[in-house]
Amino acid sequence: MGLFMKKCFLVILIILLFIPFLVSAQKQPSGISSSKERVVLVTVEKVSEGMSFPTMMITGSAYFSESSEVAAESAGKVLKVYVNEGDAVEIGQPLASLDDSLLSYSVSSAEASTKQAKSNLDKALRDFNRNKALYNQHSISQQKYQDSLTDYTNAQSMYISSLSQQKQLETQKDKMVIKSPLKGVVISKNVEVGEWVNSGGVVAGVATLTYEAKVYIPETVLPYIKAGQSVTVKTSRKEYTGKVLSINSKGDPATRLFLTRIDLGQDPDLKEGVFVIALIPSGSKIHSLLVPRDAVVERNSVKGVFKVSEDERVRFIPVKIIGYNGGYAAVSSVTEGSLKKDDQIVLDGNNAVNNGVKIKITSKIG
């Protein structure tokens, strides 16, 4: 009997615990979800109008503005290598040195010869000055005076010759230390300690950390671009405002393309050989809708902007990029009339929204 009562008590307790949940479920209106709709915080900006150049996207590569394959001017065995690839270097900084033991001996010998020649010259000059004074006093013969002058002239020639040889040997010795001609970075190390390097053999490659883009533009855009003009250049990681350095006057007769160099400035994160896209003006300025570049996103390989509706939901509007004007993109809507001046479009937060998503505007620009 005691066991039966315990079981009954347990059943009643379980029923009492579930009653509040059953009552709550009955009070919940049918067809209404208890979860809240997701709302995305965004900033918006109005679509404007203005003038801009239509542009053409032209691909190319980034290059060092200046680079050098530093060669040895004398032959010799590599004694030391002071740098590795990637090291920063200053102008005149040693890259490597060659064995100069024989030249050091020759320089020491030349210094001794020059010292002796200078001593001989000083003595010859003293003798000449003394004999000149005696000759003016008619105390010595003209022959002795002439001999003294000849000795002085010969001593002077010997000293100049000896000094010149010493300087040449010192210069050769200095050349046994190969130095960087640029301030920048080491891009290649071509020798190791103990190797023999011939005169003209490359020891290391160095380059500045300033870059330029090289692209080949078609002749159709030549009327709309010139040296000194600012153009936008993009890599996979960054966007640059470059300046056109030069447009080659000689094009390729087969392709009608002209090499164009665009200064990208200094950037330690950029690398030579990086793929670039240059936005080159391809026509006269036109009037168009303008949207912030950052407002343009891509969905399923289609570029567009998110337009804000009156109920604070967003709709993706496909657009065609016509060109660029500073930080703005000149666009036209793919469907006529779907985007117009003063429409509000999502700026910050556009990567977090999709069609029909509810938004909350935190700030408005324009």
Rank of each mutant, 00 (worst) to 15 (best):
F4K: 11
K6S: 11
I12H: 00
L17Q: 06
F21H: 09
S24P: 00
Q26R: 10
R38W: 08
V40G: 01
T43P: 02
M51G: 03
M51P: 00
M56N: 04
M57Q: 14
Y63D: 06
E69L: 10
E69Y: 09
A71D: 03
N84C: 01
E85C: 02
A88N: 09
G92M: 10
D99K: 08
D100M: 08
V107N: 02
S113N: 14
A124R: 00
R126Y: 07
D127T: 01
K132V: 00
N136W: 04
N136T: 09
L149H: 00
N154A: 09
S157A: 15
Q165L: 13
Q166H: 06
G184L: 09
V185C: 01
V186R: 02
S188L: 05
S199F: 05
G200L: 08
T208P: 04
E212L: 14
A213I: 03
T220R: 15
V221G: 06
V221M: 06
V221Y: 07
Y224C: 10
T232F: 11
T235F: 05
T235V: 09
T235S: 07
E239T: 15
F258R: 01
D263G: 01
L264Q: 02
G265I: 07
D267W: 03
E272R: 13
G273W: 01
A278Q: 05
A278Y: 05
P281T: 06
S282Y: 00
S284K: 15
V297M: 05
E298D: 02
N300E: 14
K307R: 15
V308Y: 10
E312Y: 13
R315L: 08
G327V: 04
N350E: 09
N355L: 08
K358E: 12
K358F: 09
